Measured scan of single mutants.
Amino acid sequence: VSFKITLTSDPRLPYKVLSVPESTPFTAVLKFAAEEFKVPAATSAIITNDGIGINPAQTAGNVFLKHGSELRII
């Protein structure tokens, strides 16, 4: 599955597209996205474009099915 993750704390709204296997734990996606944007993973969260928080204790495939591919990291 592929996710387009936007960094909301930067006024330029940079984004990265990450492709991972469906079975990947979403905690790993969060950690990798945080490292890519050089923000601390421990204090970061991934939310939907509607501002709904995503529980990272599920697979990337589940997140994709529930929330789609466009996400934000805060």
Rank of each mutant, 00 (worst) to 15 (best):
I54C: 02
G68R: 02
S69Y: 05
L18H: 08
F26C: 15
I46D: 02
F37C: 01
S23C: 11
T59M: 11
A45K: 15
A34H: 08
F37S: 02
S9D: 10
I47E: 15
V17A: 14
T48A: 15
F64W: 08
V63Y: 02
A42P: 02
F26S: 07
T43C: 12
S69H: 15
L71G: 00
F3M: 00
L65G: 10
I46A: 11
N62V: 12
A57Y: 09
L7D: 08
K38A: 07
G53Y: 13
E35G: 07
Q58D: 13
F37V: 00
L7V: 04
P14F: 06
K38P: 03
N55D: 15
P14K: 08
V17S: 10
P40C: 09
A28T: 11
L65N: 13
I73M: 15
K16G: 03
A33M: 09
I47D: 04
L65E: 13
K66V: 11
R72P: 04
T59S: 11
L71R: 01
T6H: 07
P40S: 09
H67D: 03
A41Y: 06
I74T: 15
N49H: 08
F64I: 06
R72K: 15
N55R: 08
R72G: 15
L13K: 12
I73L: 14
I47F: 10
E35C: 08
A28G: 12
G61D: 06
A33H: 02
A33F: 09
L7P: 07
V29W: 01
I74F: 06
T48K: 05
S19A: 13
N55P: 12
A57N: 12
S2Y: 06
F32S: 12
V20A: 05
E36K: 12
I54A: 05
I46K: 01
F64T: 03
S2M: 05
P56C: 14
D50A: 09
I74M: 06
K16L: 08
V17L: 06
A28M: 13
N55L: 11
E35P: 01
Y15H: 12
T6V: 08
K16Q: 11
T59Q: 09
I46E: 02
S69T: 12
K66M: 12
T6G: 12
I74Q: 15
H67L: 03
S2H: 05
K4M: 05
F26L: 12
P40F: 02
E35Y: 08
K16R: 13
V20E: 00
D10V: 05
I47R: 15
E35K: 08
V39G: 02
F32E: 15
A45V: 08
D10H: 07
L7W: 08
G53L: 14
T8P: 14
E36N: 04
Q58Y: 09
P56K: 11
K31Y: 08
V1K: 03
K66Q: 13
N62R: 10
L71A: 02
F37N: 02
L30Q: 15
N49A: 06
F3V: 00
A60Q: 00
N62S: 11
D10Y: 04
P11L: 06
N49E: 07
I5F: 14
F32C: 14
L7M: 12
K31N: 14
T6N: 05
K38C: 11
L65I: 11
V29C: 03
N49D: 05
K4L: 03
V1A: 14
P56M: 15
Q58S: 09
